[in-house]
């Protein structure tokens, strides 16, 4: 196992390259999901604001 991790002396290069790649890919997956979730959350927020703004006018009419 330690022989495998050492990669014949190239361990630091191989593992840092794979580590950076894994980190970037995980970050991008997280960011892509957050991108959509944020858009949805903002829409719901905007929808609620519209409702609260709409209420007084309803009362005025009533």
């Amino acid at each position: 196992m330690s022989e495998f991790l050492a990669m014949g002396g190239h361990g630091p290069y191989v593992w840092s390259a794979y580590g950076v790649t894994l980190a970037v890919m995980v970050y991008n997956a997280w960011a892509a999901y957050r991108h959509q979730a944020n858009a949805l959350a903002r829409l719901q927020q905007a929808g609620e604001e519209q409702e609260t703004r709409a209420k007084p006018t309803v009362r005025q009419i009533g």
């Binding site: 997956a29 991108h35 959509q36 858009a39």
Partner: peptide
Amino acid sequence: GWLLCKRLQGEILR
């Protein structure tokens, strides 16, 4: 392609 789909969904919503 996977991440493009998710980002595209967010972009369409915006």
